[in-house]
């Protein structure tokens, strides 16, 4: 039954997301590199065009993992687990990107690569939780138990996502608050910079969708091989 729905190749949507994302990536980089310098930070502010989309997609990916982990626990269909796995993996990559670009950005602006302030601490915890997610998956052999245990981490670990996102608002931190504030809808950014940021966000989202679909397919093929 399941076998019929899993094809050997990525479907049209996967190709479209990936193709479009990779095609627009250079354009996004061009926009980022041609965006005007910031009045305070000069050209350093351009790291934002990687840092912000990376962090957003990381949060989004972990949310998708949370949702599909819940779905898996209640429906017991391995397909949900594969999406959760794929999303967590891609999310970890994006979150890693956000952490690395953040550190590169912090050194010249704040003066340090790392400091234990609320946003950075909560993000580090978040990162550790999802690294744990994969350590766990690697350690359990029984596929059903592996999926259940992973789903539990995907659900319990998600609590750190809103905490991390809101930490700059709730607690006085060194990290600046959101420039595009989802809770109030305020935007603290010049239009030409906002354009470049939103365009990169779109590119990252396309790449995320494409990679998650591709990764879930690979996971499905692996599972089929394991069961065959």
């Amino acid at each position: 039954m399941l076998k019929a729905t899993v094809s050997d190749r990525p479907d049209l949507f996967t190709w479209a997301f990936l193709g479009l994302g990779l095609l627009l990536l250079p354009l996004g980089l061009y926009l980022a590199l041609s965006a005007p310098p910031d009045v305070n930070q000069g050209y350093l502010a351009r790291i934002m065009y990687l840092h912000v989309p990376g962090a957003w997609l990381g949060y989004l990916a972990f949310f998708v993992t949370f949702l599909y982990s819940l779905l898996y626990l209640f429906r017991q269909d391995p397909r949900y687990d594969r999406v959760a796995l794929a999303s967590a993996e891609i999310g970890l990559v994006f979150m890693g990107l956000a952490l690395v670009t953040g550190m590169l950005w912090a050194r010249p602006t704040w003066g340090v690569y790392w400091t234990w302030e609320p946003r950075l601490t909560t993000t580090a915890i978040l990162f550790a939780v999802y690294v744990g997610y994969f350590l766990l998956r690697g350690a359990i052999e029984d596929p059903e138990l592996r999926r259940k245990a992973a789903a539990a981490v995907g659900i319990l670990g998600f609590i750190n996502v809103p905490i991390s996102y809101m930490s700059v608002k709730w607690w006085r931190s060194l990290h600046q608050t959101q420039s595009i504030d989802l809770t109030t809808g305020k935007i603290h950014m010049a239009p030409e910079m906002l354009q470049a940021l939103l365009f990169n966000l779109l590119v990252f989202t396309l790449l995320y969708l494409g990679f998650v679909r591709l990764r879930a397919l690979v996971a499905a093929l692996e599972a089929r091989k394991e069961e065959a």
Binding site: P37, W110, G111
Partner: peptide
């Protein structure tokens, strides 16, 4: 240890900026 805190506002210089933008830092805090 001295750390510099910058705001979440990004403006190109030609637009001109007001000290109020930077002041927000403290008010928020």
């Amino acid at each position: 240890n001295l750390l510099v805190k910058h705001s979440e506002t990004y403006q190109p210089p030609k637009e001109g900026w007001t000290p109020e933008d930077v002041r927000k830092l403290i008010e928020e805090a």
